[in-house]
Design a protein around this nucleic acid. Structure first.
Lengths: 216, 216
DNA sequence: CCTACCGATCGGTAGG
DNA sequence: CCTACCGATCGGTAGG
C-alpha cells in the first residue's frame, strides 16, 4: 500500500478529523521523503545512471537493500523526485501569480514567472527540477507521460502573458515557439549559473526580460 | 602510438609528399572513425552511462574487446566524439561566416550563425554536438578543459555581432549574459525539435532572431 | 583485431 | 528496516 502510494505520489489524504497519522506512518513518510531528497541531490550531482541505490541508502543512513522497502524500483524513485519537484514548482508558481496585483501588466506577470522559475531552478536545495530536465531519458514511456502532464500545465500558465505581449508588439516571435525558446534559455542556466558568483537572480530576471521583450 | 593520437585527436599529419598512408593505416583510421560515429549515435540515443562498449563494438561489427585496441578507455571515446564534433562545428561556422558578404549587417551575421548552429545541432546525422552538450558530466576535469577551449572559441565568434546589435539598441540585454541565454535557447531545441515535423530550420532561425533582436 | 576471462558493481529479493 | 545473497552486466586486459 505504501508502495503504490509512492507510485501515484498523491499527497497524504488530509482528512478533517484529528488523529491523521500514527507515529509510525509519519515516520515512514518522513523516511520516504528523506530518500527522495537524497536521491534528488545525488541524481543531480552524478546523474541517474551513475548513482547507485546503495549511494542513496547511505546518504539516508540506511543499508543497501532498504530503499526497496519504500520504492519498488530505482526508476520509481526517480519518478518520485520529478513528480514531487513539479508539484512544488506548480505550487510556487500559483502563489507567485496570486501575489500579483489584479491589474498587473503582462510584462509584470512574465517577470514574476521568470523570477519564480529561477528560484525553483537555481535556489538553494532545488535539485528536483534540474533532475527532471536532464533525466527524462531514464523514465519509461508511461512515467514520462505522467510528468509531461504536470509540465504542460506549468508551462501553459505562461501563454496568456506571452500572447498579450505579442499583441502589443513587445514579443516579436510567435508565442508558441517563443515559449520553447524561452524555457530553453531559462533552463540552460543550470549549466552555467553560479549561485556564489556576482549575478543575482533579480539581475538575471531583468536581463532575460530585456532579451525577450525589450526594455520597459 | 595510435592510442596517444586518439587522445590528442590531432588530424592526420597531411604531409606534402605522395604516399601519405599505407593501406593499413587508412584502414585503421577508418575503423577508428567508425567507432566514433557509432559511439556518438549511441551516446546520444541512450546516454553515455547506459551505452556499453559492447554496444559500440557491435554497432561497428567488432567483438567486445576490440574498441580498446583503438581507444584506451570508454571515456577517451567520449572525448573523441566531443573533440571531433567541436572541430566540425568550428569548421562549419568559419565557412558560414566566410560565405557572408563583407559588408553584411550584424543582423545578417547573427542570422547566419544561428542558422548554421541549428544545422550542426539538428541536421541529419548530427549526434556529436548534442552529446557534447549533455554528457559533460562524464568527462574528467582534464578532458573538460580541452573541450571547453574549443567551445569558448566557437562561442566567442558570436560576440562581435551581439556587441554591434547591442550598440544599435536591437539587442537590449547585456551581450555577455545574452550570449548565455541565446545558446541556452538554441541548444535546448534538441529536446523538442522534430526534424519530421512541420517547422523548418529556416523558420526556426527567423523566429529566434525575432525573439532576441526583433523584426527587420 | 578475436578469445577468454577477471574483478567489481549493481538492481533487486528472500526471509526475518 | 537489516542481512545475506543472486544473476547479470560492465570496463578492461592478456595473450595471441
Amino acid at each position: 500500500m505504501l508502495k503504490s502510494a509512492a507510485l501515484a505520489e498523491t499527497p497524504p489524504p488530509m482528512r478533517r478529523g484529528r488523529p491523521r497519522k500514527s507515529a509510525e506512518e509519519r515516520d515512514e513518510s518522513q523516511r520516504r521523503a528523506d530518500l527522495v531528497r537524497a536521491a534528488a541531490q545525488l541524481f543531480r550531482a552524478k546523474g541517474f545512471d551513475a548513482t547507485s541505490t546503495r549511494d542513496i541508502a547511505a546518504a539516508t543512513g540506511m543499508q543497501s537493500g532498504s530503499p526497496f522497502y519504500y520504492f519498488e524500483s530505482k526508476s520509481a524513485l526517480l519518478l518520485a523526485v520529478m513528480v514531487d519537484g513539479m508539484a512544488q514548482a506548480q505550487a510556487h508558481q500559483d502563489a507567485a501569480l496570486k501575489a500579483l496585483p489584479a491589474r498587473a501588466s503582462a510584462r509584470d506577470r512574465l517577470r514574476a514567472l521568470i523570477r519564480q522559475h529561477f528560484e525553483v531552478l537555481l535556489g538553494a536545495g532545488s535539485d528536483f527540477i534540474p533532475v527532471m530536465l536532464y533525466e527524462w531519458r531514464s523514465l519509461t514511456a508511461l512515467q514520462r507521460e505522467q510528468v509531461a502532464t504536470q509540465k504542460d500545465s506549468y508551462e501553459a500558465a505562461w501563454m496568456p502573458s506571452l500572447n498579450a505581449l505579442h499583441r502589443t508588439g513587445h514579443l516579436q516571435a510567435r508565442p508558441a515557439v517563443a515559449r520553447l525558446f524561452i524555457f530553453g534559455a531559462l533552463n540552460w542556466t543550470v549549466q552555467w549559473f553560479d549561485p556564489a558568483g556576482p549575478r543575482s537572480l533579480d539581475d538575471l530576471t531583468e536581463q532575460a526580460l530585456c532579451l525577450f521583450v525589450g526594455k520597459a
